[in-house]
């Protein structure tokens, strides 16, 4: 009973925030709405007895990534009145992706309706930190390692991109462009 009320509360909040994110022209309003979506999703994870995922959602998305997004928006200080020059074909791409997403949503609805009904047990250990850690470092060790290597590559790449101007002799690509300047 309480679970249902909470679900509709947070699901409604998430949808309202998502609509407001798409609707607003001011990028900062969109970013704030997106934070609202993340917080509402975290609350939903909590009601599904997955506290670790909920907290990670807040810590990583709301607490780190969106701070950087807002930081960039504040630094750029975009002009609200200037119309964004969107390309025509982007509307087609967006429409196509929207249809695909809608189809996916209906498929999930269908799958959920087909699936046997099971109550969420708040005492289940699946969402607990210990079981997630154990699964990550035993069963899913290889994907974790691959992700780790990829993140390391991304960090090194970011450092190289930033250092481009300081050390042109370290460049592998685009040395001619530096000479032209």
């Amino acid at each position: 009973m309480a679970g249902t009320v909470l679900f509709f509360l947070f699901a409604g909040f998430a949808i309202a925030c998502a609509v407001s994110m798409v609707y607003h022209r001011n990028p900062l309003y969109s970013a704030i709405s997106l934070i609202g979506v993340f917080l509402a999703l975290a609350a939903l994870y909590l009601t599904l007895a997955a506290p670790f995922i909920a907290i990670t959602q807040i810590l990583v998305y709301a607490g780190a990534i969106m701070v950087l997004v807002i930081f960039v928006i504040m630094l750029l200080n975009l002009d609200e009145d200037k119309p964004l020059n969107r390309l025509k074909y982007l509307y087609a791409v967006g429409g196509g992706l929207g249809v695909a997403l809608l189809a996916q949503t209906f498929f999930i609805f269908y799958a959920v309706l087909k699936a046997p009904k099971a109550e969420v047990d708040p005492n289940t250990t699946v969402g607990k930190t210990m079981s997630i850690g154990r699964a990550m470092y035993t069963e899913y060790l290889l994907p974790v390692e691959i992700v780790g290597v990829m993140l390391l590559m991304a960090i090194i790449g970011a450092v190289i991109l930033v250092r481009k101007m300081e050390h042109p002799h370290l460049e592998l690509v685009g040395e001619d462009e530096d000479e032209k300047e």
Binding site: I32, L39, I55, I58, L59, G63, A64, V67, I70, M74
Partner: peptide
């Protein structure tokens, strides 16, 4: 009593930065 109290505190306090950043903006 949640079993991830440390993470909870870190996560929630990290949201507090929005208050200051948005106030400034």
């Amino acid at each position: 009593r949640i079993d991830i109290g440390v993470l909870f505190v870190l996560a929630v306090t990290s949201v507090g930065v929005y208050g200051i950043a948005l106030a400034g903006w």
